[in-house]
Design a binder for these strands. Structure first.
Lengths: 185, 185
DNA sequence: TCATATTTTGAGCATACACTCTAATTTGAG
DNA sequence: CTCAAATTAGAGTGTATGCTCAAAATATGA
């Protein structure tokens, strides 16, 4: 399995091309031909490195699902920091954010394992946000905190969704202000 | 253009089949073959009634986009009624709700006119929710009401999105309770 | 430099797709 | 009942897709 440098570089180019296509054009437009053209590679080279188109796509999709939860090791986050991290991800990693939203809605229907993965990621996020919320509002019960966390995350996802429709939408501002004044603070 | 009954029934079957497939399997799985099988029709019959597959799909998609804003004539709605209508749509018209979310995220990227249509629908909804909000909280300025409306709608879309991942999710309850306690009341 | 492993090529394959065409059947108004 | 119009069937077309394969080109360690 020892590999040459050329192969590793090609693999990286293919992954990058797939990520860009998924984010810019979507699942439908991410064909093998498109990936190969963007990565400047012939089909044969592609299949020397990957078993199938699905393999790269899923690799990138998993990357996107994971990336929605940045710094998963962090234990001392405040709610504000967590929201800030989410905003930073969406506005920074545009491609991955778009892929995440697409997959979560469309991919969940078709590919079952992807749907489960998205759900697991969401549940982990709920747990992390809830911990932060309970630290700041100790009077809340576990269930009540869960409920509010779900609503907060729904709001963030909804704002990301809104920003997908119109890139000029002031995503960060809406998220920040809504957090400040609402029931979540 | 006078039509026979048989043709009208077939057309309805095709539309219904397309709607079901889009809602259950998604855009990717909604092939001509699948539509024809579900509608019990051969390809020839399909093309006797529609110019292209895209025509039916767009017809159903437009239907979904419009349906997200039920009772658009209503003038005396309260915020609570508007939220209730949204919840009723999502939980009642499952197929259309799923299609709407899919299209808004994925379709908006590919088919530009669809993206614009979704955005227009959203803006109309913002206007209607804002009117209701201003009626109940007269101290709010126009901009502040717009901002809060965007957040409220983002929350509703996000909860719908969440419910897409897990049909057992208590969508209606979360929406109702969040409205009651939050900054929107 | 040589030998071997890896990578690249590009023509080509099978399949699934959206769509067409003509002949046959069914409909419904007169 | 008649007959033109509407509908249907289903084999068939062209194209795009994901993918294969054998041979050529290139990289790496000794």
């Amino acid at each position: 399995m020892a590999r040459y440098q050329a192969g590793l570089r090609t693999e990286a180019r293919i992954i990058e091309a797939t990520r860009a296509l998924l984010g810019e054009i979507g699942l439908e437009g991410t064909t093998l031909k498109a990936i190969c053209e963007r990565a400047r590679v012939r089909a044969g080279s592609f299949y020397n490195l990957f078993d199938s188109k699905e393999e790269v796509v899923l690799k990138v999709v998993r990357e996107a699902i994971t990336a929605v939860d940045p710094d998963p090791a962090g234990e001392t986050d405040t709610l504000e920091e967590l929201v800030g991290a989410y905003v930073a991800f969406v506005t920074g990693q545009t491609h991955l954010a778009r892929i995440y939203l697409q997959i979560a809605v469309a991919g969940a229907l078709s590919h079952d394992s992807v749907g489960r993965r998205v759900l697991r990621g969401h549940e982990a996020r709920v747990a992390r946000f809830r911990t932060a919320m309970l630290r700041e509002q100790t009077e809340l019960g576990h269930d009540e905190a869960t409920r509010r966390t779900e609503v907060l995350l729904a709001m963030l996802n909804g704002l990301a969704f809104r920003w997908t429709l119109e890139p000029d939408f002031a995503f960060a501002e809406h998220a920040r202000l809504a957090l400040e004044e609402s029931l979540f603070g």
